[in-house]
Design a binder for these strands. Structure first.
Lengths: 168, 168
DNA sequence: TAAACTGCTTGCGTTATGCAAGTGGATTAA
DNA sequence: TTAATCCACTTGCATAACGCAAGCAGTTTA
């Protein structure tokens, strides 16, 4: 059995850094959380930043080991692996939104790539909770009683609108 | 003149990761922001995680290059460098609090190291704003009209209380 | 039965990290 | 005045991580 490697310290910021403090973990989680990618191939071929195959494999493995993802074979294709967010990963949403809001304010973001984050930030705690409930339904199978247009749909719509506005 | 190196993408999460996505940047910022360290030596000798000298030097340089810190010689000691947070770094506070809250919930944090984060999270937006105003006064020289006990003092008090409670 | 798809692994060169020691200027104490 | 200490690093070197391109083995589809 793999014993947990010793932690540098018990400070929450440090521990979060030890889990997520590399160049790819948050980007992979973003693609699963906001982009709806569920497989190695889906992440790889749609990767905006061009993640390398070995890096993606190692990150997925690490995220599973750290309890942020679970892996299960696809029902229709034994070799295909479906990755699901855990509650631990879904609970990262507020931090990701805060980090994205900071990025939008201080870093040279592109509007159509920032729009999902903007919608979620402006939607406040209510919209964030609704999105987390959707993620829990999609990834954990926890029934979500909310009705009407899903947050995921709203995000996708905003993204498409932003894209078309930029093209003209 | 140093031309900016090409970004992997204009996504806010990715850009934030490119700036902060390593094992030390957030930890150094934490020590300056919450620990009140202002010099290389102060960070190094109090480092909970035992940062190496060359890594600290390279991170400080990087953080200055990325506009999160400014460096100025100390008035009493020409060789001593005082680092100050920029507005860009102070604006990271909400994200750091959110990340710390996540760490407290899902990672094996130690109570006395988590208490500052907890106080700030439970204090809500109001306390966060008050602390940011204090940081702006301390690091940017922007007058802070607020009176009474400072947030920094409250955090320190909570930390000392947590420490003494643990020792018995 | 072959082609395409699946999730990887492997080799290899480059870059980053980590440890220990050293450097050189500034300040302080005897 | 001189020695010790403080200050912010740098340097050398070993190890680990990253990044690119290619390859691989099982699965499914045409």
């Amino acid at each position: 059995m793999p014993e947990p490697k010793p932690k540098r310290s018990g400070c929450p910021i440090n521990l979060a850094t030890e889990v997520l403090g590399d160049g790819w973990s948050l980007v992979v989680l973003r693609d699963i959380m906001f982009g709806g990618r569920r497989t190695y191939r889906a992440i790889l071929t749609n990767s905006l930043e061009g993640i390398a195959t070995n890096i993606l494999a190692s990150r997925l493995k690490q995220l599973v080991e750290n309890g942020l993802l679970t892996a299960a074979p696809a029902p229709d294709h034994r070799q295909k692996t479906i990755y699901s967010l855990t509650e631990k990963a879904i609970a990262l949403l507020p931090a990701m939104i805060a980090l994205g809001a900071w990025g939008r304010q201080f870093l040279p973001t592109e509007p159509e790539l920032a729009i999902r984050n903007q919608v979620l930030e402006e939607g406040g705690r209510e919209l964030q909770e609704a999105f987390m409930a959707e993620l829990r339904e999609t990834h954990l199978g926890i029934a979500n009683p909310s009705s009407g247009q899903s947050v995921a749909e709203r995000l996708e719509l905003a993204f498409q609108q932003a894209k078309s506005e930029i093209r003209r």
